[in-house]
């Protein structure tokens, strides 16, 4: 097999909303998209894992604070510690922050209003498994839809870990940060929704730059293991 389909899991938590769109988008980009239930203690054989958007556990306490205690999250943390690729979108980003797999925290938007619109993003790093298909400084247009997307970074966050910035005011995020990676660059979180922007019919296909980068990277990993 010259070009095997990488297997990418999409975790559904109680209250996930965008799991189906993510499964659809990954399949459209030639991955084998595998649904994973939050109560599973083991992950199936996967080349990457995605935590989708939504309102897991009703956003009780803090967004992502309860979901990060789901049984599957131990397996996701172990997968990430082993170098596995993990992408969190919106609520998935919040869960990864709460789980300590990504630096920082997400709080209520500065405006206190829910933002739901297409926004411009600037690609800061192309040397990550999630942005390899982008050009340096490229502008991407993707939708956001969140009430708590104001990113608070830890004091010492290295610039190298900032992957995406908003190109316009969106939610009050410190330094306009829209997406970050962990130190080893195998875990990424972002507030905008690439899975809602993989077909021009939906206003933008720029989300495919991110998701197709992930599919490429997952495929390389699958080939390396095989």
């Amino acid at each position: 097999m010259a070009s095997p389909q990488p297997r990418i899991g999409v975790v559904t938590f109680p209250g996930s909303l965008d799991d189906r769109d993510m499964l659809w988008a990954l399949a459209a980009l030639d991955a084998e998209a595998v649904p994973v239930w939050h109560a599973e203690e083991q992950l199936p054989d996967l080349d990457a894992v995605v935590l989708p958007g939504g309102f897991s556990y009703g956003d009780y306490l803090r967004c992502g604070a309860i979901a990060r205690l789901s049984p599957v999250m131990n397996a996701v943390a172990a997968f990430a510690a082993d170098g596995g690729l993990v992408l969190g979108v919106c609520n998935g980003f919040q869960i990864l922050c709460e789980a300590g797999l990504l630096p920082g925290a997400l709080r209520a938007n500065e405006s206190l209003t829910y933002v739901c619109r297409d926004v411009r993003l600037t690609v800061e790093r192309t040397d990550t498994p999630f942005t390899a298909r982008c050009g340096p400084g490229q502008t991407l247009v993707m939708p956001v839809k969140h009430g708590e997307g104001c990113y608070i970074r830890p004091d010492h966050l290295p610039q190298e870990q900032v992957v995406l910035r908003y190109g316009e005011p969106v939610n009050g995020s410190v330094d306009d940060i829209a997406g970050v990676v962990n130190e080893h660059r195998n875990v990424m979180g972002l507030m905008p929704h690439p899975e809602h922007a993989v077909d021009p019919l939906l206003g933008s296909a720029d989300g495919a730059f991110v998701l197709a980068s992930l599919v490429d990277s997952a495929r390389s990993r699958a080939l390396a293991i095989a």
Binding site: R107, A108, N109, E110, S111, L112, C150, I152, G172
Partner: peptide, 14 residues
């Protein structure tokens, strides 16, 4: 409570 220096839009609205 939100730490000092952390933006608290809810507090501002109140």
């Amino acid at each position: 409570r939100p730490k000092q220096g952390i933006l608290d839009p809810q507090g501002e609205a109140v």
